[in-house]
Amino acid sequence: MPKLTAKSATLLVLAALIAVTPFFFPSGYYYRIGALIFVNGLAVTGIVILTGYAGQISLGHAGFAGIGGYACALAPTHLGLHPSLAVVLGAVISGVLAYLVGRPILRLKGYYLAVATLGFGILVSMVLNNERRLTGGPDGIAVPELGLRGLLKDWGLDLTNGEFWYFFCGLVLLIGAWIALNLHQSPSGRALRALHGSEIAAGTVGIDVARVKLQAFVISAVYASVAGSLVALQNKFITPDVAGFMHSIEMVTMAVLGGAGSVLGAIFGAGILTLLPQALTVFAEYEQLVLGLVMMLVMIFLREGLLPSILRKLRGRGE
């Protein structure tokens, strides 16, 4: 039997989970939760590239999710763009913005990046809250229908709304994971991981550290943006919360909880933190308490994250 590469193994596990889990859904509502996990997983995959591969941090990636989301709300009505193109427009704006913001910030180290990204996220959410005439302010704004489900129906594939978004988001997550895994083993990805290992040594082998950091920042911004677009399109509504500070924190926490170094681990983390509020109805009140606690505990005791630690244990037992 040919040996499975880590990449195909990850993709197979992911695809199998997406395909099989619906058989165990007690009700249609669970499709919605599944789709939410996939969207969060997508955003967190971007964090894996930035934090897990390149070792950089962002506390403002929700800002890019906000841009992606509001692009889907605004571009169709104001520019007459099809919602699917609005997703692309949002991603482009996010990428360009990440480039412009990242250029000065990424020349410097950790703390500055954290603060500047934090400020950037707050700025975006401030604009979304304050520019009422355009964004509807804190109450949010309606988002047009993507229209893909109707198209599929014409082709004879009749899915409920929940089913459609479940499988559609699952597919996008698979593509996102595939891209992130491609990057991992590619020359560009190696450069990112090298600078994570030692910035000084990365320089001596000719890696333009500032440039590749910027690449990682832009790529992860595009992930967050697309995730934000998907949330908006699925809910047909969006509020500035998507760009809020707590959403940025959620993304980072999901990534480090599952294991920022691995795509599957991070998606696993996204799954746990998305399910938690569903399982505990009182969770809403404790959300910040729990998120903060998880961030501290994981960084102190399980720096690799949950999934890699579990796998290591299992492997250790097997040998």
Partner: peptide, 13 residues
């Protein structure tokens, strides 16, 4: 690195 680096888009895809 200097020999193997190339367009990041090609690497992503």
């Amino acid at each position: 690195h200097l020999q193997e680096k190339g367009p990041v888009l090609a690497d992503l895809l």
